[in-house]
């Protein structure tokens, strides 16, 4: 009886251990880094962090002409960096609140394709020149008012002249956050000030200096980050932003 048990155990151990498979494929270690630049200004296109902001699209074309795309999100200042990418051939493009780099006509045929094809080995540094839908520029610095609210001045202008992408401005939003990662997915609604526009009323404000004020006074002894976002009705209605400005409330 005991012998049978021993034999069975031995057999099971041998059978079980022989099943072990080792995944000996090297871990992804190549680096894909770069910047999304405003073609007109040469500066990084500001965005929000997370899936609502700029993202990099990778098409691994080594095996198939129509692979399932891989995405990773970019950083707030328009740069992106991924240090865990497999070595392979990629068709790389970026998506966000700017004129799409890859455009198709009604039949799905590609009419514009500014994506870049790279054979990734080591580090690749890519620059994409894009035309943001909107540009937001600070005018001066944030000002603390007598009632404790903070006012900012800025201008919103178009970043493109292509007529297909001149949708009306639908929202201008002063975002307030206690971190610099300020945007439509991370703001304090108690102070942030959102204005929505119907029809062409928002578009009419383009190029003018606008003054936005926080909804209520900012609490004292804290640093806040202010940022303006604006968007048009085009596509997924993503926001364009300016760079956040910190204000320390004494």
């Amino acid at each position: 009886m005991k012998r049978i048990l021993y034999c069975t155990t031995l057999c099971l151990v041998l059978a079980g251990s022989s099943c072990k498979k080792i995944d000996n494929y090297a871990a992804p270690a190549e680096t894909l880094t770069g910047t999304v630049l405003d073609a007109g200004l040469g500066t990084g296109v500001q965005t929000e962090i997370g899936s609502g902001g700029t993202r990099v699209k990778l098409l691994e074309t080594s095996w198939s002409a129509t692979p399932t795309p891989l995405y990773f999100v970019g950083k707030q200042d328009g740069t992106f960096n991924n240090t865990k990418v497999f070595a392979a051939t990629y068709k790389v493009s970026v998506e966000g609140a700017f004129v799409p780099l890859v455009q198709t006509d009604a039949s799905g045929a590609t009419t514009v394709d500014k994506s870049q094809t790279i054979t990734l080995k080591g580090t690749a540094n890519l620059t994409f020149n894009v035309e943001p839908f909107l540009r937001i520029d600070w005018v001066g610095n944030p000002v603390t008012n007598a009632d404790g609210t903070v006012s900012v001045q800025f201008k919103v202008t178009r970043g493109t002249t292509q007529t297909a992408f001149l949708s009306d401005v639908t929202d201008i939003f002063l975002f307030i956050s206690d971190t610099q990662y300020d945007g439509n997915n991370n703001y304090d609604p108690r102070y942030s000030n959102q204005v929505t526009y119907a029809g062409t009323t928002g578009t009419a404000l383009l190029g003018t200096t606008l003054t936005f004020t926080t909804k209520t006074a900012l609490p004292k002894s804290q640093t806040y980050y202010l940022r303006v976002g604006a968007r048009t009705g085009y596509g997924l209605k993503q926001y364009n932003y300016n760079a956040p400005k910190a204000i320390a409330i004494p």
Partner: peptide
Amino acid sequence: NTTTLVDPATSNR
């Protein structure tokens, strides 16, 4: 609707 997506393989919108 304002969203467009065309499948390049089939030209189906």
